[in-house]
Design a protein around this nucleic acid. Structure first.
Length: 1105
RNA sequence: GGGCCAAUAGCUCAAUUAGGUUGAGCGCCACUCUGAUAAGGUGGAGGCUCUCGGUUCAAAUCCGAGUUGGCCCA
């Protein structure tokens, strides 16, 4: 790319981005950038692997873009950054997709199809999806190592999971056991709690009466009891497994004699629920006959309501009695007496285990009653509800049967209603290391901090043992082999002839170990660890044969070892010692319960450490109206649509302008447009000096050795070379650049790239475009070479160079184009190899920044006052009076009077110091509420209003007190510190306060009185402006000489213009003033005066150029 | 049902470890300027700072309860 080459007139993201992609390809930009930092300090970033089903959505895009901006930033700071992307490719979601594609209904179809073929199909599907994601991420301009992503399905990665699990097993933290789990009866597997989605459904809502009965050993008092315990459930199908009734020991209960159709019953319910229960049962009347506490009910025995239909029902010692449990709420749903079935519900199970009850669960993994289900054997549980309700009614146990709409858990993949059943699963018993987990949390820093200290800590404190097993196919097989022949005759665990017990399992940690121990020949290099392969392998040791348990890992377990998988541990150990744990991870807030947690669990159980140091937790992408995006409901903004409309840089900048710390991001097309406008402004700023530099053959020098790729002296013009010639604005814009860099660095330190971007945009738009470029235009138009022009070139070049580098992580495409044009062959092949610019003390100048900030505030106030006075900027005013509140402002005006007069188009600038006054003014006052408040208490508001409304001739405290006292009809004592006087503007002068971010620094008064001389210049400028516009309309070249005809329809004005005719001729390049017969002609209305103008290009003048 | 977070102009967000007359950008309307700019400038309209209580002379800010939204959990 040649330096200062022609660039497009307008910022065109699409064409530009295409060509930048090509450029990156040509020069191997990514590879070069990585190689450039190969010797830098290493930084270990770990990519949280997206799941490979479906395309990249706005949330994924935000996530990867955030990662990209930080990775680029870190590289520019000199780090050698790991950037291996990852993909989560196992698990139920892919299985169900593939099942759909193949038209399968359930697991039997998979078995018939063949496990190996099914696994192969899943792999193909995952690979396909991965390609789609890869190309999306690359298309967004994300630079990661796309050639070598880590995949959770590769043998190396699966080995990491095996290794981690075996480490946990070595620490005795792996356990096989019964647990109540959420089971999807269609997928026939346990699913994780966070995979359960809750939807509102209509379910039965039944009240059931349990007959209180005598039981052997009851005290005489109890033995005489009759009556019924009333329980409530929405899952009638769990009634066969009822084992006990739970009450709140502290709760209030009552016995109620209730009457219905002439029959009486004694019912026991919680006191607060009497009304609800009896009205549900449609009783005619009732009477409370007994008041008890939960404790009184303990030990009461009752008849199992399904004893006849379910002969296998629990009837062991202690079954069908009342127990206390802390999950009972006498004010909640139900009756305050909770039907408890440890074979189903999680809390019931825990309490049942505590009570040492055998677990009775008559339902299989497919949701169908087993033989133990008695009459209901073979029925699907939900289908059995109806029969069960009918049977309860038939035996007189049903008090009421209604339906209820409530939220109920469903399988996240296939939307089947889940069931709670107790099955045998594999656990990592993280509850044994809870303290260690909580300690390890402290070793990580989170942004924002509350995510760790509130959310994450709460979750970890509550977390139960980690169920890692799934009864499926597409996953990492559990590396567990269990001994054969260890079951006793009755099915319980025992020992085999070699003294090997059921607990004596073998957990294999690596492929090498697998090859060594299994009976079959296995090549550790090439072995695929999927289920179809390892299921066949057996281990025989000391006469006992071990076979693999058929389960696979829950997919959440896969990604938990990402920090190991990223660096190929354990098969390669090199990087582990140097890098682990990760320096930084960043994901959305749903991962608190997901990846942030699973990694902590894995790291702690396997290695005793948390596997990451810093966490940046961002939010979700929402719709412009604040709704959650949802692909299934077609509520989304597709990133590709955003790119089609505004381009990649704009989308990235929009995403990155959002706070990444926990807050959700609301997508906004307006926001996108704003970003595009900012980039257009940058483009125009960049484009503006190019023609002049080109024309003058300006050769820039570059400031630092690193920018010269470590090279030595430069031939071009550097800032050093023009140091003597720099003008005020040059020094100012350089000073602003330094403070912008400092501000950005501070924001990046806080992981607030959004604020860093704001600071940069503010600098580009507000300072460079609106002020600096405006101020240097005339210097660049000068035809002759001048020191001033060189200084301006060198300055704007330097500023642009650094802006481009600072913006590069955000907008990698447009900055590449700008960089190439600015550097030509003198730069790197890509801007992304540049070092991150740091503030240069030499150009820092706070005083100057303040001066200019004040001047700009005066200019703004002056423009405001002019408008009030009805005087346009092109009409000069005789005088502007700046009344300064503080010496700082007065100093600034004195230092830069000429500049100010120029920008305000004032003949004269007058400064009044803080202690001077202008006699014509009147005064009122403003209050300092921090002083007025304590002094006047609840009267402070009134005093403030009186101060504001006062009008006095002198800014004098006594006069003010008098006026205020008068207004409030009460003696008011004021303090000088309490008030600041403000002026009231006289008629012939317009004034406006000089304000910077709310602070008032003084007032600018514009004296707008007219003189003949001012009118003369004013009208002349009006004419000039019109002629310039006509030149533009006629598409005349800037240098084109013209003839001008001027007819003013007002003699006085015509004379006034005539006085300044030399000025007019010079400004509009009119060599001749005469009648024009064949040219552009237009009639204008100027301040109510009609004037007819005509112009005609002169052919002869062109030759003189 | 529980936990965490958020709520300020039509939209996006500020309001500086500390309570003191609520601000910016974008959008809208009017005026204005313009030889880099699909730009720029000035003004205007637009706010019971989600609601209700409490603390205080004074609350967007502190406390409590609620509403709505998001995430997580049941």
């Amino acid at each position: 790319m040649s330096r200062f080459g022609e660039v497009a007139d307008q910022y065109d993201p699409h064409a530009l981005e295409e060509s930048v992609f090509e450029h990156w390809d040509e020069v191997d930009a990514y590879e070069q950038t990585k190689a450039h930092r190969a010797d830098g300090e290493r930084f270990f970033f770990v990519d949280g692997p997206p799941y490979t089903s479906g395309a990249a959505h706005m949330g994924t895009t935000w996530n990867k873009t955030l990662k990209d901006v930080y990775l680029r930033f870190l590289r520019m700071q000199g780090y050698d950054v790991t950037d291996r992307p990852g993909y989560d490719m196992h698990g139920l979601p892919i299985e169900t997709r593939v099942e759909e594609q193949l038209g399968f209904e359930n697991k039997k179809d998979i078995e018939a199809y063949g496990e190996d073929a099914f696994i192969e199909a899943c792999k193909e599907y995952a690979d396909e999806q991965l390609e789609g994601l890869q190309s999306d991420f690359q298309d967004f301009g994300v630079w990661m190592d796309w050639e070598d992503p880590y995949k959770t399905v590769s043998p190396e990665y699966m080995e990491a999971a095996w290794w981690g699990f075996s480490q946990a097993a070595d620490r005795d933290l792996v356990e096989k056991g019964h647990r109540s789990i959420s089971q999807c009866p269609r997928c026939e597997t346990a699913i994780a709690n966070n995979e359960v989605e809750y939807d509102d459904v209509e379910d039965p809502s039944i009240y059931v009466k349990f007959d209180v009965t005598d039981r052997e050993g009851d005290t005489p008092a109890d033995a005489s009891r009759d009556g019924k315990l009333v329980v409530w459930t929405t899952t009638p199908w769990t009634i066969p497994a009822n084992t006990f009734v739970a009450v709140d020991e502290e709760g209030d209960y009552v016995g109620v004699r209730a009457e219905k159709d002439g029959d009486e019953e004694l019912l026991y319910v919680a006191e607060p629920k009497v009304e609800a229960v009896l009205s549900a049962g449609r009783y005619d009347d009732y009477e409370v006959v007994e008041e008890l506490t939960g404790a009184d009910l303990l030990g009461w025995a009752y008849e199992h309501p399904m004893a006849e239909n379910v002969p296998a029902h629990p009837d062991h010692e202690g079954a069908c009695e009342v127990y206390a449990a802390d999950y009972v709420d006498t004010h909640g749903d139900g009756t305050g007496l909770v039907h408890s079935a440890p074979g189903h519900g999680e809390e019931d199970f825990d309490r049942g285990t505590e009570l040492d009850f055998p677990i009775f669960c008559p339902v299989g993994g497919d949701g169908v009653y087993t033989e133990e289900g008695g009459k209901y054997e073979g029925q699907f549980v939900r289908d059995a509800n109806e029969d069960i309700i009918a049977d309860l009614k038939a035996n007189g146990s049903l008090l009421a049967s209604e339906t209820i709409s409530h939220s109920y858990g469903h399988c996240w993949r296939c939307d089947t209603g889940i069931i709670q059943i107790v099955t045998e699963q594999w656990f990592i018993t993280i509850t044994d290391v809870k303290d260690e987990l909580l300690d390890n949390i402290e070793d990580s820093e989170w942004h924002p901090e509350w995510a760790r200290d509130n959310r994450f800590r709460d979750f970890v404190e509550e977390a139960p043992d980690w169920n890692v097993s799934r009864q499926r196919y597409w996953g990492i097989p559990l590396p567990v082999w269990t001994p054969e022949g260890v079951e006793n005759d009755d099915g319980t665990s025992g020992e085999n002839g070699n003294g090997v017990a059921a607990e004596d399992m073998i957990v294999v940690g690596t492929r090498e170990e697998l090859a060594e121990r299994v009976d079959q020949d296995v090549d550790p290099q090439s072995v695929d660890l999927h289920k179809d392969t390892v299921d066949e392998l057996t281990i025989t040791e000391d006469g006992t044969t071990y076979t693999r348990v058929p389960d696979v890992f829950d997919v959440w377990f896969d990604s938990s070892v990402a920090s190991l998988g990223t660096i190929g541990y354990p098969s390669s150990e090199d990087d582990f010692d140097e890098l682990w744990p990760a320096d930084l991870i960043m994901e959305a807030h749903d991962q608190t319960r997901g990846w942030f947690w699973s990694q902590l669990g894995m790291g702690t159980t396997a290695l005793g450490e948390i596997p990451y140091k810093e966490v940046l937790m961002h939010g979700f992408a929402q719709m412009p109206d604040g709704r959650a995006m949802s692909k299934s409901k077609d509520i989304l903004v597709d990133p590709h649509e955003a790119i089609d409309k505004h381009g990649r840089d704009v989308m990235r900048m929009f995403l990155l302008s959002n706070n990444p710390q926990g807050d959700d991001m609301r997508f906004s097309w307006d926001g996108m447009e704003t970003m595009e406008r900012h980039l257009r402004t940058l483009w125009n700023v960049f484009r503006f000096p190019l023609p002049y530099m080109r024309l003058d053959g300006f050769e820039p020098g570059v400031a630092t050795p690193s920018q010269r790729d470590g090279g030595g002296e430069t031939a071009g013009v550097t800032l050093d070379d023009v140091d003597e010639d720099l003008e005020l604005v040059d020094e100012w814009v350089l000073a602003r650049l330094q403070s912008t860099k400092a501000e950005m660095a501070a924001h990046f330190d806080d992981y607030r790239q959004d604020r860093a971007l704001d600071a940069l945009i503010e600098f580009v738009v507000e300072d460079v475009s609106r002020f600096y470029v405006q101020a240097v235009r005339e210097r660049m138009w000068e035809e002759a070479d001048s020191a001033s022009k060189s200084a301006a070139y060198a300055t704007i070049y330097h500023v642009l160079r650094e802006i481009v580098v600072l913006l590069a992580p955000y907008a990698p495409f447009v900055t590449e184009e700008l960089y190439g044009t600015l550097t030509g062959d003198d730069g790197f092949d890509t801007v992304h190899m540049e070092d991150w610019p740091t503030p240069d003390e030499r150009w820092a100048d706070e005083e100057l920044e303040t001066d200019v900030a004040l001047l700009r505030a005066i200019e703004e106030a002056g423009a405001n006052a002019r408008q009030q006075a009805g005087r346009k900027l092109r009409w000069p005013v005789p005088r502007v009076v700046v009344a300064a509140n503080d010496e700082r402002l007065a100093t600034a005006v004195e230092r830069h009077e000429g500049l100010l007069a120029d920008r305000l188009n004032a003949r004269e600038i007058e400064v009044l110091g803080a202690d001077e006054r202008w006699g014509e003014l009147e005064y009122s006052a403003e209050a300092d509420m921090s002083l007025l408040g304590p002094a006047f208490g609840d009267q402070a508001g009134q005093v403030m209003n009186a101060l504001n409304e006062a009008s006095i001739e002198e800014p004098d405290l006594d006069a003010l007190e008098a006026t205020v006292s008068d207004a409030l009809d009460e003696e008011i004592d004021l303090d000088e510190e309490m008030v600041s006087f403000v002026t009231q503007t006289p008629d012939d002068v317009a004034g406006s306060t000089i304000t910077i971010e709310g602070d008032e620094h003084g007032v600018a008064y514009v004296d707008a009185s007219l003189t003949a001389d001012i009118e003369s210049e004013g009208y002349a400028r009006e004419v000039i402006r019109r002629v310039q516009e006509m030149r533009k309309d006629a598409d005349l070249d800037v240098e084109q000489r013209i003839a001008l005809e001027l007819d003013v329809d007002d003699d006085r004005v015509a004379d006034l213009v005539d006085e300044r005719m030399d000025l007019v001729r010079e400004e509009v390049r009119a060599d001749e003033v005469r009648t024009v017969s064949d040219g552009h002609r237009e009639t204008w209305d100027v301040e109510g005066v009609s004037m007819e103008l005509a112009i005609e290009p002169l052919a002869t003048a062109e030759a003189s150029d």
